[in-house]
Design a protein around this nucleic acid. Structure first.
Length: 332
DNA sequence: TATGTATGGTAAC
DNA sequence: TTACCCTACATAT
């Protein structure tokens, strides 16, 4: 369930647990057997996340490109270094098992949001982690090593102590350095990869000459990286923009404002693991939001419900084959 | 328990 | 334009 923030979080986990180590690679499902055999035995040397794609480099200029698509997921298991920000976003993560034998170091309790966050440094814990917005604690059956393969695992990467399983990706392939560069070159700016000011220039320049509706441009990964259907709807609402306005007709300062908003939202998303788009509310708007319903979004998935700001019914329509939610009154 | 939908993108038609 | 990847979750039964 990844928009850009998820991929950057996954990349962090690879950086902490895989990079610098030799891996045993396999394709239990069989569909990436050839690629896995090419990786097998090599050392991971660096990881990069750009937009919704992740690139993992191995010895001898062998790169793995992964795009999770809609269903893809990485599951980490074994003894992993837990990112404190990831731990803080998941109350159940790092839970000790009943026997209490499998956990090393200080681990947060089942209530979450305590020790790991406050320590501010990664700790080792033996856990099973789904790299989306949910994690599971440790059960006795998870102690088996290597972990039993469950379901369709396209690629398994094993170090001495860590297991990373990839399921259901849209893309999982090996690339040469030139191919990696070409793939990245086709992508629009990513606030966590590119210089913020340069990214703003690139984004604004492209939007300024496009007749395409701004609602489509925000989803176009060659225009800006990492924005998906949720962030698109929310950014448009926060900027009070009609999704149908041609890019070139959106005031330049508004376009730049949307980039800067994405910079902020992505940062929040990476730190919290959640697409929180109602963060910087004015006190008045905040009260209204809290009074209406326990939800994280302004308009996403709220078709038929009253706008949190003006009460107008939120509408849904198809744009670029995806559902677009917006407020016809606030977004003009 | 079964069904429908989804945060994405590519390839085949 | 459609199939597909083949998971997770919400909702219906």
């Amino acid at each position: 369930m990844p928009e850009g923030h998820s991929v950057h979080r996954i990349s962090r986990q690879f950086d902490r647990n895989i990079v610098g180590l030799a891996v045993h690679a396999s394709s239990p499902q069989g569909r990436f057997a050839e690629g896995a055999s090419m990786i097998d035995g090599r050392t991971a040397t660096q990881v990069r996340a750009v937009g919704k794609q992740m690139f993992l480099e191995f010895d001898d200029d062998v790169w793995l490109r992964v795009h999770l698509g809609m269903y893809g997921a990485w599951d980490f298991a074994g003894e992993i270094v837990v990112d404190p920000t990831i731990a803080s976003a998941n109350g159940r993560m790092g839970q000790t098992n009943q026997r209490g034998t499998a956990v090393e170091g200080a681990v947060m309790d089942s209530a979450g949001e305590n020790s790991l966050t406050s320590i501010g440094a990664p700790r080792r814990a033996r856990v099973r982690v789904r790299m989306s917005e949910q994690t599971t604690g440790l059960n006795d059956e998870d102690l088996e090593w290597p972990p039993p393969v469950v379901g369709q695992v396209r690629l398994r990467l094993l170090t001495e102590i860590t297991c990373a399983d990839l399921r259901g990706p849209t893309a999982c392939e090996l690339q040469t350095p030139d191919e990696v560069a070409a793939t990245i070159a086709k992508l629009g700016p990513d606030p966590l990869v590119d210089d913020i000011a340069e990214g703003e220039e690139r984004f604004a320049a492209v939007v300024a000459r496009k007749p395409t509706p701004i609602g489509q441009l925000l989803m176009d990964q060659s225009v800006v990286s990492g924005i998906g259907n949720v962030y698109r709807a929310e950014i448009l609402f926060r900027a009070q923009q009609n999704p149908h306005t041609p890019g070139r007709d959106v005031p330049g300062e508004v376009v730049r404002g949307m980039w800067r908003d994405w910079v902020r939202l992505l940062s929040v998303g990476v730190e919290t693991g959640q697409m929180m788009t109602m963060d910087d509310l004015s006190p008045d708007r905040y009260r209204k939001a809290m009074a209406s319903r326990d939800d994280r979004h302004w308009v996403y998935h709220r078709a038929g419900l009253p706008c949190r700001v003006c009460g107008t019914t939120i509408v849904v329509e198809e744009m670029a084959t995806r559902k677009l939610y917006w407020c016809p009154s606030c977004q003009t």
